[in-house]
Protein backbone atom coordinates (compact mmCIF):
# COMPACT_ATOMS: atom_id res chain seq x y z
CA UNK A 1 0.00 0.00 0.00
CA UNK A 2 2.88 2.39 0.63
CA UNK A 3 4.47 1.85 -2.75
CA UNK A 4 4.83 5.15 -4.53
CA UNK A 5 5.43 5.57 -8.21
CA UNK A 6 6.75 8.53 -10.11
CA UNK A 7 4.34 9.82 -12.71
CA UNK A 8 5.39 12.11 -15.54
CA UNK A 9 2.44 13.47 -17.39
CA UNK A 10 1.55 16.54 -19.41
CA UNK A 11 -1.55 18.08 -17.88
CA UNK A 12 -3.26 20.77 -19.92
CA UNK A 13 0.01 21.40 -21.73
CA UNK A 14 2.16 21.63 -18.62
CA UNK A 15 4.66 18.84 -17.89
CA UNK A 16 4.27 17.51 -14.37
CA UNK A 17 6.31 14.94 -12.48
CA UNK A 18 4.90 13.76 -9.17
CA UNK A 19 5.20 10.86 -6.83
CA UNK A 20 1.88 9.23 -6.07
CA UNK A 21 0.73 6.02 -4.39
CA UNK A 22 0.62 3.18 -6.89
CA UNK A 23 -3.08 2.69 -6.19
CA UNK A 24 -3.94 6.38 -6.64
CA UNK A 25 -6.78 6.93 -9.04
CA UNK A 26 -6.42 9.47 -11.79
CA UNK A 27 -9.46 11.40 -10.53
CA UNK A 28 -7.92 11.86 -7.07
CA UNK A 29 -4.55 12.75 -8.56
CA UNK A 30 -6.15 15.45 -10.75
CA UNK A 31 -8.53 16.81 -8.11
CA UNK A 32 -6.46 16.58 -4.94
CA UNK A 33 -2.87 16.83 -6.16
CA UNK A 34 -3.37 19.08 -9.16
CA UNK A 35 -6.39 21.05 -7.92
CA UNK A 36 -8.37 20.41 -11.09
CA UNK A 37 -11.84 20.42 -9.54
CA UNK A 38 -13.63 20.29 -12.90
CA UNK A 39 -13.12 16.52 -12.82
CA UNK A 40 -16.31 15.35 -11.11
CA UNK A 41 -16.93 12.21 -9.09
CA UNK A 42 -20.44 10.83 -9.48
CA UNK A 43 -21.15 7.13 -10.09
CA UNK A 44 -17.58 5.99 -9.28
CA UNK A 45 -18.07 2.96 -11.54
CA UNK A 46 -17.46 4.21 -15.06
CA UNK A 47 -21.04 4.47 -16.20
CA UNK A 48 -21.90 8.19 -15.96
CA UNK A 49 -18.98 9.95 -17.62
CA UNK A 50 -18.85 12.87 -15.15
CA UNK A 51 -15.16 12.18 -14.47
CA UNK A 52 -14.21 12.01 -18.17
CA UNK A 53 -10.82 13.44 -19.10
CA UNK A 54 -8.88 13.24 -22.33
CA UNK A 55 -5.83 10.99 -22.34
CA UNK A 56 -3.89 11.57 -25.54
CA UNK A 57 -7.09 12.92 -27.05
CA UNK A 58 -9.29 9.97 -26.10
CA UNK A 59 -12.02 10.13 -23.44
CA UNK A 60 -11.37 8.06 -20.32
CA UNK A 61 -13.15 7.69 -16.99
CA UNK A 62 -10.69 8.99 -14.44
CA UNK A 63 -12.60 7.29 -11.59
CA UNK A 64 -11.50 3.87 -12.80
CA UNK A 65 -8.08 4.73 -14.21
CA UNK A 66 -4.89 4.55 -12.16
CA UNK A 67 -2.84 7.69 -12.18
CA UNK A 68 0.18 5.50 -12.86
CA UNK A 69 -1.41 4.30 -16.08
CA UNK A 70 -1.29 7.74 -17.68
CA UNK A 71 2.46 8.03 -17.17
CA UNK A 72 3.90 9.56 -20.30
CA UNK A 73 0.53 10.68 -21.65
CA UNK A 74 -1.11 14.04 -22.27
CA UNK A 75 -4.12 14.65 -20.05
CA UNK A 76 -6.67 17.36 -20.80
CA UNK A 77 -9.45 18.73 -18.58
CA UNK A 78 -11.84 21.57 -19.41
CA UNK A 79 -9.47 24.02 -17.74
CA UNK A 80 -7.01 23.12 -20.51
CA UNK A 81 -9.42 23.91 -23.32
CA UNK A 82 -9.16 27.61 -22.57
CA UNK A 83 -6.47 29.34 -24.63
CA UNK A 84 -5.36 32.84 -23.61
CA UNK A 85 -8.65 33.34 -21.79
CA UNK A 86 -10.70 32.31 -24.82
CA UNK A 87 -13.10 29.42 -24.49
CA UNK A 88 -12.98 26.45 -26.81
CA UNK A 89 -15.81 26.65 -29.38
CA UNK A 90 -17.42 23.70 -27.60
CA UNK A 91 -17.42 25.51 -24.26
CA UNK A 92 -18.90 28.60 -25.90
CA UNK A 93 -21.52 26.51 -27.71
CA UNK A 94 -22.58 24.83 -24.45
CA UNK A 95 -23.21 28.31 -23.02
CA UNK A 96 -24.91 29.69 -26.13
CA UNK A 97 -27.26 26.73 -26.53
CA UNK A 98 -28.21 26.31 -22.88
CA UNK A 99 -26.61 22.87 -22.84
CA UNK A 100 -25.74 23.34 -19.16
CA UNK A 101 -28.01 23.25 -16.15
CA UNK A 102 -26.53 22.13 -12.85
CA UNK A 103 -23.19 21.80 -14.60
CA UNK A 104 -21.94 18.74 -12.77
CA UNK A 105 -21.84 16.55 -15.90
CA UNK A 106 -20.77 19.41 -18.16
CA UNK A 107 -16.96 19.01 -18.10
CA UNK A 108 -17.31 15.32 -18.96
CA UNK A 109 -19.69 16.05 -21.82
CA UNK A 110 -17.49 18.79 -23.25
CA UNK A 111 -14.46 16.52 -23.16
CA UNK A 112 -16.27 13.56 -24.71
CA UNK A 113 -17.49 15.91 -27.44
CA UNK A 114 -13.99 17.31 -27.84
CA UNK A 115 -12.63 13.82 -28.39
CA UNK A 116 -15.26 13.28 -31.06
CA UNK A 117 -14.53 16.52 -32.89
CA UNK A 118 -10.78 15.87 -32.76
CA UNK A 119 -11.23 12.71 -34.79
CA UNK A 120 -14.38 13.70 -36.69
CA UNK A 121 -14.81 17.45 -37.21
CA UNK A 122 -18.21 17.10 -38.93
CA UNK A 123 -20.14 14.40 -37.11
CA UNK A 124 -23.70 13.40 -37.95
CA UNK A 125 -26.33 13.40 -35.22
CA UNK A 126 -25.95 9.64 -34.97
CA UNK A 127 -22.22 9.99 -34.49
CA UNK A 128 -22.74 12.60 -31.78
CA UNK A 129 -25.23 10.32 -30.04
CA UNK A 130 -22.83 7.42 -30.21
CA UNK A 131 -19.92 9.46 -28.86
CA UNK A 132 -21.87 10.95 -25.95
CA UNK A 133 -24.02 7.96 -25.00
CA UNK A 134 -21.60 7.09 -22.20
CA UNK A 135 -22.27 10.39 -20.45
CA UNK A 136 -25.33 10.89 -18.27
CA UNK A 137 -27.03 14.24 -17.82
CA UNK A 138 -30.00 14.26 -15.45
CA UNK A 139 -30.94 17.91 -16.04
CA UNK A 140 -31.06 18.97 -19.66
CA UNK A 141 -32.86 16.21 -21.50
CA UNK A 142 -29.87 16.09 -23.90
CA UNK A 143 -31.40 17.91 -26.91
CA UNK A 144 -29.55 21.14 -26.21
CA UNK A 145 -26.29 19.25 -25.74
CA UNK A 146 -26.66 17.79 -29.24
CA UNK A 147 -27.46 21.26 -30.57
CA UNK A 148 -24.35 22.68 -28.93
CA UNK A 149 -22.06 20.00 -30.35
CA UNK A 150 -23.55 20.34 -33.83
CA UNK A 151 -23.09 24.08 -33.67
CA UNK A 152 -19.50 23.82 -32.42
CA UNK A 153 -18.73 21.34 -35.21
CA UNK A 154 -20.06 23.65 -37.89
CA UNK A 155 -18.42 26.77 -36.44
Amino acid sequence: MDTSVEISVEINGVPVTRSAPAEALLIDFLRDDMGLRSVKLSCDMEICGACTVLVDGLPMSSCTTLAADVDGAKVTTVEGLITDGVLDPLQQAFIDHGAVQCGFCTPGFILAAKALLLRNPSPTRAEIVSALDGNICRCTGYSKIVEAVRHAASA
Binding site: S38, V78, L87, T106
Partner: peptide
Protein backbone atom coordinates in the same frame (compact mmCIF):
# COMPACT_ATOMS: atom_id res chain seq x y z
CA UNK B 1 -23.16 30.47 -13.73
CA UNK B 2 -22.58 29.01 -17.18
CA UNK B 3 -19.12 30.43 -17.82
CA UNK B 4 -17.94 29.04 -14.49
CA UNK B 5 -19.50 25.69 -15.25
CA UNK B 6 -17.99 25.16 -18.72
CA UNK B 7 -14.57 26.35 -17.62
CA UNK B 8 -14.31 24.21 -14.49
Amino acid sequence: DLLEKVSG
